[in-house]
Amino acid sequence: MTAVTETIPARKPNVLLQTLNRNRLSWVGIGLLALILLSAIFAPLLAPHDPLQQNILNRLEGPSPEFWLGTDSYGRDVLSRLLYGTRVSLLVGFLSVLIAMTVGSAIGIFAGYVGGMVDQLIMGLVDVMLSFPTLLLGLMVAAMLGASLENLIIAIAITETAPFVRIARAPTISAKRKEYVEAGRALGFSPLRIMGVHILPNILSDIVVVASLWMASAIRTEASLSFIGLGVQPPTPTWGGMIREGFENILSSWWLVVFPSLAILLTVLALNILGDALRDAIDPKLKGES
């Protein structure tokens, strides 16, 4: 009996690990993501040069033993800027998705639980929000708020709230019909308690999976807005900003555009692989496939 109770709590992570093991690619995604995360955290230790240190004598130099990924038009080290840029990308991606997830899920659970006219009204608004292309909506909000790190996070959070409303609403509707929710009502629990304590934990896995996919999208949007000049302002290194600056010299100095683009590509890819792997691990219908 003791043995049984000790093994059971470990059951969930085991299933997760098994599914991740079945799909080798998911480990590539996780490894990649760990690498990106570590380079963001240890950027000051890893960067061979100061990312803001200009050196006109070394401007637009190609990759060399001293500057592994070359230098930009101000003579700044591209590798160092890339490592520091990781921080902005991950910060913006993580925080904007966290805000969008929190606000969107709260609205979605409310709509799904209350139902009726309120639900229809909210979902109507969500459909309107979803009909805007993400980038266009982000562009509008960022332009209205002005370019800064905080406003960029808010703008991206707003563009990604609507999908979370949808994602939270559907499982709420099915959780609402579960007997433990009915039992909660029979015990005199308030609707707020039922939504927060009894529905949210049961649908959280659905939301988190999608959050990892939307984080990839948030990082892409951040890069796009920075490319347009509505993101974090120079001289702070960001991947999107680096591509924009390098764009002027793209024909002579390819490394200025290629390396930040690769960084975005790999980060988005890693997050998408992780999101797919998590979805497969949690969705029982997909078990054994892929």
């Binding site: 007997e179 009915e182 039992a183 029979a186 629990f189 009894h198 934990p201």
Partner: peptide, 21 residues
């Protein structure tokens, strides 16, 4: 009144408890 003066138990013991608590 619910749960305090009058309580109710349901048919399905498998789904009547919150699996996350």
């Amino acid at each position: 009144v619910r749960g305090n003066d009058i309580a109710m138990i349901f048919q399905e013991p498998m789904t009547s408890l919150n699996p996350t608590m």
